[in-house]
């Protein structure tokens, strides 16, 4: 899976979970850039990403991620 593909499917997840079709993700996007991305929504995002990419995060994985780029890298690592 290419980075673009991962980013595209992550964007779908974010749009669904946050109910906002205007969301565009880039590697630099952080939680501060998206108003609806609060702590409860974050759990929904984690769960939806796990389902979307058929993977399971572990305790170490879900330590705070600084931006979407780190999230993409994590998914890449988990799915490779």
């Amino acid at each position: 899976m290419t980075t673009e593909e991962i980013l595209g499917r992550m964007t779908d997840v974010f749009r669904d979970v946050l109910d906002n079709d205007a969301i565009e993700l880039s590697r630099e996007t952080t939680a501060n850039d998206i108003e609806e991305w609060d702590s409860l929504a974050h759990i929904n995002i984690i769960v939806a990403i796990e389902q979307e990419f058929s993977l399971r995060f572990d305790l170490i994985d879900i330590k705070p991620l600084r931006n979407i780029g780190e999230f993409v890298d994590l998914i890449e690592r988990k799915t490779s």
Binding site: V13, D16, V17, D19, N44, A48
Partner: peptide, 13 residues
């Protein structure tokens, strides 16, 4: 459950 969790906000609306 996954569909309900993912679409929660749109469903509520």
């Amino acid at each position: 459950p996954h569909a309900l969790l993912r679409k929660k906000k749109a469903l509520r609306r």
